[in-house]
Simulated scan of single mutants.
Amino acid sequence: MDNLLGDYLRARRQLVSPEDVGLPAGGRRRVRGLRREELALLAGISSDYYMRLEQDRDQNPSAQVLDALARVLGLDDDATNHLHSLTAPAPAATTAVGPAPVVPPSIAELIGTWPATPAYVQDRLTNVLAANAIATALSPRYAPGHNLLREVFLDPAEQDFRVDWDEMTADGVGGLRASLGRDVGDPAATELVTELSAKSERFHELRSRHDIKPRTGHLARFRHPAAGPLDLHSDKLTLPGPDALSLVVFHAVPGSRHAETLASLANLVDSN
């Protein structure tokens, strides 16, 4: 059985140095980050009780205990909420593959009417399900059938295409963990994580941090092979429905050089 709470506490504990919480470094240390007893002391709980939490021998800590641990670990609101969620009842395990998500026809029609606004629809695993012409002109990897996490970690061309590749990969792994939460039994998610962990050292390293980074919007910086440098604001909007789909829309600052570049790319699409 997965020890979600213990794995998360251990991973986050290893990322906090003694100096971060006002403790002396104390010479050579055999463990990375805080010792269990140091975290327990700072959180106001016994070392034995903390040990039981990390070893999955107590799965019902109080909200006050979790908040105290989150404070010492320096967790933000999203990560603290995730910590609390790890003590909630686990969703029913399943090995069955459900029906493929369906993009609402009205959404597909809508983004198709946007000639100069790149947009696509993805599921919670970053599988692209629908995209308009300007999105696929921005990158062929935004075409339906591609998985963006797989592309960004396994396609070397992505490191050249994305100026902010390091930040994007970190946010992508944190976003995946946030979207899955306790649902670790999804066969498709398990397959994707297993593949990327085996093939990408970067993914394996980031996954071991247990970062939680829900993403709603950011600045995406591209090196387009034809159009050149292109900085676009990216916003992710959750679509209603049971399939946890998101609409991702790009836009440039009006009047900027990047807006002119995006318009030129749109004209190139029209001419074809």
Rank of each mutant, 00 (worst) to 15 (best):
68 A>R: 11
239 L>E: 02
4 L>D: 12
203 F>S: 06
255 G>Y: 12
165 W>V: 01
261 T>N: 00
58 D>G: 05
96 A>S: 08
155 D>I: 01
27 G>E: 02
138 L>W: 07
223 R>M: 14
28 R>T: 09
100 A>H: 05
125 L>V: 11
174 G>E: 09
166 D>P: 03
2 D>W: 15
170 A>N: 06
164 D>A: 07
15 L>N: 03
202 R>L: 14
206 L>Y: 03
138 L>R: 07
74 G>R: 13
161 F>Y: 06
154 L>D: 00
156 P>L: 02
118 P>S: 07
54 E>M: 03
22 G>Y: 09
109 E>S: 15
37 E>T: 02
3 N>F: 12
203 F>H: 05
65 V>S: 03
221 R>F: 08
31 V>C: 00
196 L>C: 06
121 V>G: 08
16 V>F: 07
236 K>L: 15
18 P>R: 10
101 P>A: 00
178 A>R: 00
16 V>E: 12
120 Y>R: 04
74 G>F: 10
105 P>D: 10
253 V>T: 15
113 T>L: 11
253 V>I: 15
58 D>M: 02
72 V>R: 01
80 T>F: 03
121 V>S: 07
266 A>Y: 04
163 V>G: 04
204 H>F: 11
151 E>D: 07
266 A>L: 04
249 V>Y: 13
101 P>Q: 03
265 L>D: 09
35 R>F: 01
134 I>V: 15
194 T>A: 15
164 D>K: 06
56 D>V: 09
175 G>D: 11
220 A>N: 13
5 L>E: 07
20 D>L: 04
248 V>S: 11
256 S>G: 08
43 A>F: 02
72 V>P: 03
232 L>K: 11
18 P>Q: 08
226 A>V: 12
51 M>T: 14
248 V>H: 09
132 N>D: 07
42 L>E: 04
46 S>M: 05
133 A>F: 01
137 A>C: 14
140 P>L: 11
247 L>P: 12
68 A>W: 01
199 K>H: 15
228 G>C: 13
205 E>Y: 09
204 H>K: 15
57 R>L: 10
111 I>P: 05
179 S>Q: 15
246 S>M: 12
257 R>E: 15
180 L>W: 06
246 S>A: 14
123 D>R: 08
40 A>T: 02
150 R>F: 05
238 T>Q: 15
242 P>K: 10
102 V>G: 00
150 R>Q: 07
97 V>N: 04
